[in-house]
């Protein structure tokens, strides 16, 4: 096995960054502070590089698709066209970049989101079907919160706001805290398993 494919390398990187990150947070020492700060610089640098890597990967992927005339290759031309157009507009004219972003990209994104919104509403309709006692309580709580988010009900039925606030402040918050604590405990467990080399899902 090539040394770059060895699992020990990502594990070692994880271990070093974990220990610096963990101790840097708790320990106050000039040397530790400097290492902690340098680590941040590296991560920021790598995040910037990752954007570049993403661009290369995307170009290779779509380039290959066009070269092999794979299914839907026509759309890859659209990707390249949009990429070049956005890149050129950034340097040629900020006004055209704003136009592309505000008048084309933003409405297109909102339109796709709204399209999924229809599915979401029909999903809610199915989710609130009272099949059991638990489903009844889910539907009831959902109903009260729907009224809370439709401001007209809060105005005409003041009690709705109070009940919805109680639901959010008490049962929902209690459950939220339970989940937050559970996830925090799970995160420590995963971190330790990764540190010991038992958790390998993230390396494939």
């Amino acid at each position: 096995m090539s040394w770059v494919r060895r699992r020990e390398i990502p594990l070692l990187i994880f271990a070093i960054t974990f220990i610096i990150g963990c101790f840097g947070y708790y320990i106050e020492h000039p040397a530790m502070g400097k290492i902690y700060s340098t680590l941040f610089d590296w991560v920021l640098l790598m995040s910037n590089l990752a954007l570049g890597t993403g661009l290369i990967a995307m170009t290779l992927y779509h380039g290959k698709k066009i070269a092999k005339r794979e299914k839907g290759y026509e759309m890859s031309f659209v990707v390249f066209g949009a990429l070049i157009l956005m890149f050129v507009s950034c340097y040629a004219s900020p006004a055209s970049r704003e136009y592309l972003y505000a008048k084309i990209y933003t409405p297109a994104s909102i339109a796709i989101l709204c399209f999924t919104g229809f599915s979401e509403i029909s999903g809610l309709y199915r989710a609130f079907r009272v099949r059991s006692v638990e489903a009844f309580f889910l539907a009831l709580a959902g109903f009260i919160l729907l009224m809370h988010f439709a401001p007209v009900y809060g105005f005409f039925i003041p009690g709705v706001e109070k009940v919805a606030s109680w639901l959010l402040d008490n049962p929902a918050m209690g459950a939220s805290r339970g989940i937050v604590i559970g996830v925090a405990i799970g995160t420590i467990a995963i971190a330790i398993r990764v540190l010991l080399g038992y958790e390998k899902a993230y390396t494939g």
């Binding site: 989710a127 489903a135 889910l138 959902g142 459950a175 989940i179 559970g182 996830v183 799970g186």
Partner: peptide
């Protein structure tokens, strides 16, 4: 999922569900 506000939807919409832990 372990994400709180998606748990009810998982329970209501899926045939089988795994909650939180």
């Amino acid at each position: 999922t372990g994400r709180l506000y998606q748990v009810p939807f998982v329970v209501a919409l899926c045939d089988y569900s795994l909650i939180g832990e």
